[in-house]
């Protein structure tokens, strides 16, 4: 059930607020419910914004991590 099917990889590097959230919102419409998006960003704002966006829209934040100066997160489309 929780197997991660091939979702989408999103490159958000170099983008600042509000673009990471907007690109994510657009991209998630292109995948079926239950699938995931893996994204990479450099804007430190995503640490607060991606969890907030997931809470507002009801999608699931699977992972959010910081590696050096890069951020990686995985979001599952719930609805």
């Amino acid at each position: 059930m929780s197997t991660q099917t091939t979702g989408m990889v999103l490159d958000l590097k170099g983008l600042l607020c509000p673009m990471p959230v907007i690109k994510l919102a657009k991209a998630i419409k292109d995948i079926p419910v239950g699938e995931i998006i893996e994204a990479f960003a450099t804007d430190p704002g995503v640490m607060a914004d991606i969890p907030a966006w997931c809470r507002t829209t009801g999608n699931e934040l699977v992972t959010l991590e910081k590696n050096d100066k890069q951020f990686r997160f995985v979001v599952r489309r719930v609805k």
């Binding site: 607020c17 509000p18 959230v21 907007i22 994510l24 919102a25 966006w53 507002t56 829209t57």
Partner: peptide, 11 residues
């Protein structure tokens, strides 16, 4: 416009 697009992107 940042707030407007952010809100629209949040549904």
């Amino acid at each position: 416009f940042i707030i407007a697009t952010g809100a629209a992107a949040s549904g």
